[in-house]
Amino acid sequence: MPDAAKVLDAARAAGRRIATAESCTGGLIAGALTEVPGSSDVVEGGFVTYSNVAKQSMLGVSAETLQTHGAVSEEVAREMAEGALARTEANLTVSVTGIAGPGGSEYKPEGRVCFGLAADGATPHTETVEFGARGRSNVRQATVRHALAMLLRHLDAL
């Protein structure tokens, strides 16, 4: 499991700057990255867009996408990542939107998190992970770990 320092070192080596677009984690991914001393040369910033209105106004997620697919969808995760890329000087972004719990529904269960990754010159990537009903804090921490792993996989492939 990658830690934030490894992500930052890989981004530094690749000449990348990172931004985050977070819903269910409420800024924990940016927090993990900026916990590392010296991270300011890699971390551009982050968006906490918990509500649909914030996703639209801050990241440009379309109302149609939200209505058609719901906030917890790969389509919204992609638009969140692309919005962060377009609205910052970052050239690599990661986004998360999900249901940390408690709660959920038959169609969108607790522990479902959709991830997006966007980078200059690359096709956006999305994926969904079913972490299960393991409790809000555990889902959020697992989401941070997975987002960091996504960033590291992308950076290692450069």
Rank of each mutant, 00 (worst) to 15 (best):
M1Q: 12
D3F: 02
V7C: 03
D9K: 14
A13S: 15
G15A: 03
R16G: 00
R17N: 05
T20P: 08
T20M: 05
E22P: 12
E22N: 06
S23M: 06
G26F: 10
I29G: 03
G31D: 13
A32L: 04
V36R: 11
S40K: 02
D41T: 14
V42D: 04
V43H: 01
G45V: 12
G46D: 12
V48I: 15
A54T: 11
K55P: 07
M58E: 12
L59V: 10
V61A: 07
V61N: 10
S62K: 08
E64F: 02
E64G: 11
E64C: 01
V72M: 12
V72G: 13
S73E: 06
E75N: 13
E75K: 14
A77E: 09
R78V: 07
E79K: 02
A81T: 06
A81K: 11
A81W: 07
A81L: 09
A84E: 00
A86S: 15
T88L: 10
V96C: 13
G98K: 04
I99S: 08
G101L: 06
P102D: 01
Y107R: 14
E110C: 13
A118F: 02
A119Q: 11
G121A: 04
A122E: 14
P124F: 03
P124N: 06
P124A: 05
E127R: 15
E127W: 06
T128L: 13
E130L: 10
E130F: 12
G132H: 08
A133S: 14
S137K: 10
S137Y: 02
V139M: 06
R145K: 14
R145P: 01
A147W: 02
A149F: 00
L151F: 07
H154A: 11
H154C: 07
H154R: 13
L155I: 07
A157H: 12
A157S: 15
